[in-house]
Nucleic acid binder design. Structure first.
Length: 266
DNA sequence: ATTGCTTCCTGAGCGC
DNA sequence: TGCGCTCAGGAAGCAA
């Protein structure tokens, strides 16, 4: 479900509402939702600070533990004052002030992991640069693409190359850059690379400004949808903004929307 | 080393 | 109504 802008929206919502909250109980309603990588219990600790890395939510618990949440396709975090269990509620964190955070996940791919404060998920250590920082720049992307035979679409989806992009935003980025999604990475020109960097930063910033994209069930922690779906140009569109019919193809098993007129193979 | 196919799981939407 | 199929904001784990 959520990509970088959606996760960022959730983290901001959590930061406003839960910093300083003490965990009274942490209950798992389905096996393997909460995975402990430490013997230390999270109960009694405080949500000290929150951050995001790629699509991961990182919660610092009293500088003692780190809670790492990944929502995968259908995970949701809902902050409520009363218990509202659904058939898909997988875990509930109750705070000392009687509020609670419910983790719902229809497809059950998501997880909550708990590590020592100085430890983290190995997958996080392998993540590529954050696209909204200076680390994601022309020099870096040129080096990545120089010899890459894979289609640019797959490369941009690879979290070890760039952290946080998913299927929607990669389609949108490629539309804005006029690059065909099947074009091999090494075929991109310097000008293309600069356009990719610029479009990536623009699309993500705009999406964050609109609280993310709700195609079906993304919701902020107060259960409100995002608004960026109103600004998508090709993803799940029949026509691009210029009126050309779009096409849908599969790349690496993922539906890829593009405009065959605006986005040409060289 | 790189690339891509299958898998985890549940539900919605479609054609017949 | 219901069946069977395809599809879904992700990514690990394999196989080639």
């Amino acid at each position: 479900m959520p990509e970088l802008p959606e996760v960022e929206t959730i983290v901001r919502g959590l930061r406003e509402n839960t910093v300083g909250n003490r965990i009274e109980s942490l209950t798992e309603l389905r096996n393997n939702t909460i995975i402990y990588h430490t013997n230390q219990c999270a109960e009694g600790l405080v949500f000290s600070s929150l951050s995001r890395r790629g699509k991961y939510i990182l919660i610092n618990l009293s500088d003692i533990l780190t809670m790492v949440i990944h929502l995968r396709m259908t995970g949701k975090l809902v902050y409520t004052e009363t218990e509202q269990l659904t058939p898909h509620t997988r875990a509930v964190i109750k705070f000392a002030d009687r509020t609670m955070l419910q983790f719902e996940d229809i497809r059950t791919f998501g997880s909550i992991q708990i590590f020592e404060a100085n430890d983290t998920d190995p997958a996080i250590k392998r993540l590529g640069p954050e696209p909204l920082t200076e680390d994601f720049n022309e020099k870096y992307l040129y080096k990545v693409l120089e010899k890459a035979k894979a289609p640019i679409k797959s490369i941009l989806l690879n979290q070890e190359i760039i952290a946080g992009l998913g299927n929607i935003y990669v389609c949108e980025i490629l539309y804005r850059t006029k690059i065909h999604p099947t074009l091999a990475g090494k075929e991109l020109t310097r000008a293309d690379i600069i356009r990719v960097i610029t479009a990536t930063k623009e699309v993500l910033a705009e999406a964050i400004l609109h609280n993310g994209t709700s195609i079906s069930d993304f919701r902020n922690i107060d259960d409100k949808p995002g608004e960026f779906q109103n600004f998508l140009r090709v993803y799940q569109k029949k026509e691009c903004p210029l009126g050309h019919p779009t096409e849908r193809i599969k790349i690496a098993g993922r539906s890829t929307y593009f405009c065959p007129v605006c986005q040409r193979l060289k």
